[in-house]
Design a protein around this nucleic acid. Structure first.
Length: 268
DNA sequence: ATTGAGACCTGTCGGC
DNA sequence: TGCCGACAGGTCTCAA
């Protein structure tokens, strides 16, 4: 599923089902996802109460009464299902039985997901979080932050946006969408939006606003799986650009091995 | 230190 | 119908 908006939707749904409840039992139906589950994974979680559920970039963080944090990444195909009974489906890998009778099941066909336990006190030292960039919906994420993160990067702007050290939570869809809204070419060098004479370039201001707008509107769309009609350029190769008066045609190109969608006419 | 290529997995879809 | 390649919302690691 998951870029920032989808992970946020999952967080909200899990929060309703899990906050304040106790994990009675954890069933691992295999030994690994992307990596092996850590030693004693299930037993560290059992009997812990879930105090709060947070999100950082594309990661979910469940704060437990022990002080440990359960760290979860959905990878490419991870999802959660909440039900009362719990007959297993294909690719159900982790089952959380809660004290209130609910069963929360993690399903992930491609197994690019990740679960780990961060021991109490080690908060943001986990290597997945250590070098993560700014949280784009925080007030502190602004043109200065983005310009600084892009400084001296010779890589394409779109590729830079996918780098979680530059901004946390953008993925292949919303990187393309944000660039279209900002009217910026995905092929520009990232450093071309960086600071000049102590001030971020205008492009950095536009891109910062576009990132926030794209993510906010996707979150507002809420908890429903997205459809291609939700996007202005993503998966619209050959279609007419939706920008009023543009008249260009959306193109698909490859960057760093991944598809980028953009309008060559209005994105410079 | 950056950067690109390939690897990790399974499922789906379109073409022949 | 079946087979085959291309592609999919994400990281990681390795080599240049």
């Amino acid at each position: 599923m998951p870029e920032l908006p989808e992970v946020e939707a999952v967080r909200r749904r899990l929060e309703r089902a899990m906050r304040g409840t106790t994990i009675a039992r954890v069933l691992l139906r295999r030994a690994n996802l992307r990596r092996p589950f850590p030693e004693g994974f299930a037993s560290r979680l059992e009997r812990q109460t879930i105090r709060s559920l947070r999100r950082r970039g594309k990661y979910l963080l469940l704060d437990l009464s022990s002080g440990d944090v359960l760290l979860i990444h959905l990878g490419m195909s991870g999802s959660f299902r909440i039900d009362e009974d719990g007959s297993p489906d294909a690719h159900d890998h982790v089952v959380f039985q809660l004290s209130n009778g609910s069963v929360v099941t993690f399903n992930d066909p491609r197994r690019f997901g990740l679960m780990d336990v961060i021991e109490a006190g080690w908060g943001s030292e986990h290597r997945a979080l250590r070098s993560m960039g700014a949280e784009p919906l925080d007030a502190s994420f602004d043109a200065v932050t983005l310009a600084r993160a892009c400084a001296n990067r010779r890589t394409a702007l779109k590729v830079a946006l996918l780098d979680q050290r530059v901004v946390a939570g953008l993925g292949n869809i919303y990187a393309s969408e944000a660039l279209h809204r900002a009217g910026l070419s995905p092929r520009r060098r990232a450093s071309t939006i960086a600071t000049t004479g102590g001030r971020p370039r205008p492009a950095a201001f536009r891109l910062t606003s576009a990132i926030k707008a794209v993510l906010r509107s996707a979150i507002a769309r809420q908890e429903r799986p997205y459809r291609s009609g939700d996007f202005r350029v993503y998966d619209r190769d050959g279609e007419k650009c939706s920008r009023p008066g543009c008249g260009g045609t959306v193109r698909r190109i490859q960057q760093a091995g991944r598809s980028t969608f953009f309008c060559p006419k209005c994105q410079r």
